[in-house]
Computed example of a mutant assay.
Amino acid sequence: MNLLCLLLPMWECTFSLLALVILTRPESTVSSICASVLHSKQKPISQFSSEMEAVSPGVAVVRVMHHQDLNWRILVALIVASTLLGGILLFLLCFWICRQKNLKNSNAKSKQNFEPTKALSLSPIADRFNFLWMAAKKGSVAVIEYQLLEAATNNFRESNVLVQGGRGRIYRACFDEKYLAAVKKLDGGGQDAEREFENEVNWLVKIQHQNIVSLLGCCINGETRLLVYEMMQNGSLESQLHGPTQGSTLTWHLRMKIAIDVARALDYLHEQCNPPVVHRDIKSSNILLDSNYDAKLSDFGLALTTGSQNKNVKLSGTLGYVAPEYLLEGKLTDKSDVYAFGVVLLELLIRKKPLEKMSSAQCQSLVTWVISFKPTQGGPVMV
């Protein structure tokens, strides 16, 4: 269609050129031709020729020469115009063929290469996730082949386990010598697990922030669901605070930096997203740390948008971090995330778990312990 739109003006230019050649030929030629036509109507051709030869010898010959010259000019103009038009058409055809080849090559390269994962060989996006791409409008998530994830995690060996979570394990995946990623393998099935998986993918495709973990891809293999994240070399804040090191690697400067990073992530979710998003599961195990101890919020399987429809939602979250109004009345607002963030701050300051087991039938909440302490009994010890 574009080629046709280009050709029509060219044809118009060609015929305009021919008309210009005809109109700009010598005036004597035009007048002589007109005179010849008029005289031919009044007198027979033979009588006209004899009279002209007698009265003015050679005039008829001159007029015939002018007529032949006109035909010759028109023929030359037609040949030149046709040659130019043919050359233009040939050039446009070559240009169109080259452009089609370049488009095919670029499309083939874009299918082979996936920017976030670079070295991964990814399959096309599954039809069931098309709605995620349409909803996000900022990007899309790749569906990665299960065999590739098996090879990257060494067939999901125990030695590659990074974290044992509530919903499944997170494995260390090595796709080549330089590129590492974290693969979360979700356990179990059912509608709740399926809904959380799709919710996680949906939100992480939409939400892009420096303090929110990046989702590189996902995989569906039968009942198994897998999520591929960017690698966070220093694990979770929970493992740093309550693991073997007991927070010894976290200086006060790093703890303040982690708190600010999480606050920025929550500010983005609550103030900059439209509509605002409530994470619903803010806790130290969902705060991941990269090689520079930059904190990033993860696990958006329970995230919801704020609004009147969320006043009485199903209770979800982790005990010790759940806000009282949400726990007792089921009212969910962005303040629920703020309360959980306050518990994380207490963890950073005191290095105690949010819910500690006192006996086989009794647990103590960190918030309750901090509120009810008396100076004479010894308050929280800051480390």
Rank of each mutant, 00 (worst) to 15 (best):
L3I: 08
C5G: 11
W11F: 12
E12K: 13
C13H: 05
F15G: 10
L18A: 14
L23D: 14
C34H: 03
S36Y: 03
V37Q: 08
V37P: 07
H39P: 06
K41P: 12
K43G: 02
Q47I: 00
E51A: 02
E53T: 12
S56H: 11
P57R: 09
A60Y: 04
V62W: 11
V62K: 09
R63K: 10
H66L: 11
L75S: 13
V76F: 04
S82M: 11
T83S: 08
L85A: 15
G86W: 09
F91W: 14
L103D: 15
A108V: 01
Q112T: 08
N113P: 00
E115W: 06
E115Y: 13
T117A: 14
L120N: 13
L120M: 08
S121W: 01
A135M: 15
A135I: 14
A136Y: 12
S140Y: 13
S140L: 08
V141F: 01
A142N: 11
A142V: 03
Y146T: 01
A152R: 07
R157M: 05
L162I: 00
Q164C: 05
G165K: 13
R167F: 06
G168P: 13
G168L: 00
Y171W: 01
R172L: 00
R172H: 00
D176H: 06
D176A: 05
L180Y: 02
V183D: 03
V183G: 03
V183E: 02
L186I: 06
D187H: 13
G188Y: 10
Q191E: 00
A193V: 13
R195K: 03
E196A: 10
N199Y: 12
E200A: 04
W203Q: 11
L204N: 08
H209N: 04
N211P: 15
V213P: 15
S214D: 03
G217V: 02
C218G: 10
C218L: 07
M231L: 04
M232W: 08
G235R: 03
H242A: 14
P244E: 14
S248H: 01
S248E: 04
T249F: 09
L250E: 02
T251W: 04
W252N: 00
W252I: 02
H253K: 06
R255K: 01
M256H: 04
L269M: 01
E271F: 08
N274Y: 15
N274S: 05
P275Y: 05
H279T: 04
K283G: 07
N286V: 03
I287K: 01
L289K: 01
N292F: 06
D299Q: 04
F300E: 00
F300G: 05
L302V: 03
T305E: 11
G307A: 00
N312Y: 08
L319I: 01
L327F: 10
E329L: 09
E329W: 12
K331R: 14
K331I: 03
L332G: 04
L345N: 14
L345T: 12
L346V: 04
L346W: 06
I350M: 09
K352T: 12
K352E: 12
L355A: 01
S360D: 09
A361W: 09
L366M: 02
T368H: 06
V370G: 14
F373G: 06
Q377K: 12
P380I: 12
